[in-house]
Design a protein around this nucleic acid. Structure first.
Lengths: 186, 186
DNA sequence: TGGTACATGTACCATATGGTACAGTAGGCC
DNA sequence: GGCCTACTGTACCATATGGTACATGTACCA
């Protein structure tokens, strides 16, 4: 398995293709054709089909983590965060994210700790921010967890129904009641 | 494609197997061996591999709908509903549900309206119940949508982290703040 | 008895699959 | 020049795949 820049290019192309076509259902040859290379090349650079899928998984996890840090300033206000995440331009990303998520649920070993990070990595910074705002740590932890679930649950809804209006109303309701409750206490 | 009781038995066995092993990643022969038949039989009864997966999808949707009606009385109190859904015995069901959900997101046509029901069918009865309790319809709709997202988001969390305690705390927080807000207004 | 409908087994087919063997090719470096 | 490393193309292999053809069994009804 190589590590050069040719590999990096292929990986980027593979992720890009996976956004549209998914990962699990395609053969090496189909993927190769879609991104303009040969299945031989994919095997050279990623060792095996599983190696490719693992690499794509890690890349998506990485970009997810990147999004986490990028959105640091948005955490202060929840609504802009939702407006950003619910944008249709991000749907392919989120679909792929859920696809990898569910795939990991089937076989924890195969996906190399994806599930260990997929929740916890998000909880900590959110909770830390809340603690910084004077919320007691245990309350903050529960709030972070609930907020993450609300966002992911509503994104699942949105991807299925495409009902941006309805899901946004539900999110606003969450902000109005839960976060208001939090402020009242904190 | 047959419709007899032999088919029904095979379908039940296939669903049962899918709970443990998933659907998409197995070949007809693997599924057949797992449930004690031949791939020839699966083709006879379900026409094709896609036919089998479609049948499994519909069966899961059906059982999901059944669960919806069964849980009618639980809706009055949210917490027992969560205790029921978060029980580890139901994890395989929920994993398979999310698997089919995500698979449907990839190809809406293939899954025969699954996505059209996966949210709406749940919103209506929940909202109706809230309206019956005196909540204005538009507020009730948003509350139903938020509640569904919370449950599904926390189930995703639970399936990944296995942290029943943490997710339950988050759910309790939701009940305490959102539903309290609702009562205050209603 | 024969027929008919559902069900099952055997054997096969064309094709696609992941993976390998091996022979290059291009470019930097000595 | 020769050497090495990174990369790519061709050709192949054993195997597994979804699907089909056809014969067989089995039960029930006439």
């Amino acid at each position: 398995m190589a590590t050069g820049q040719a590999r990096a290019k292929l990986l980027a192309a593979a992720v890009d293709d996976a956004l549209e076509a998914g990962i699990a259902d395609l053969s090496l040859r189909q993927i190769a054709e879609a991104i303009g290379t040969s299945h031989r090349m994919l095997l050279y650079h990623f060792g095996s089909r599983d190696g490719l899928l693992a690499a794509v998984t890690m890349a998506v996890e990485e970009s997810e983590r990147q999004r986490l840090f990028d959105s640091d300033e948005s955490f202060t206000n929840a609504r802009p965060l939702w407006d950003h995440l619910s944008d249709a331009a991000l749907w392919p990303q989120e679909r792929l994210f859920f696809e990898i998520y569910v795939r990991a649920l089937r076989d924890r070993n195969r996906s190399d700790g994806f599930l260990d990070h997929v929740v916890d990595d998000w909880l900590e910074p959110i909770a830390a921010r809340l603690v910084g705002a004077g919320i007691p740590p245990d309350v903050a932890a529960a709030h972070a967890r609930l907020g993450l679930a609300v966002v992911r649950g509503l994104l699942l809804d949105l991807l299925a129904t495409h009902d941006l209006e309805g899901t946004t109303r539900a999110f606003d309701l969450y902000v109005a009641s839960v976060i208001a409750t939090l402020r009242r206490r904190g």
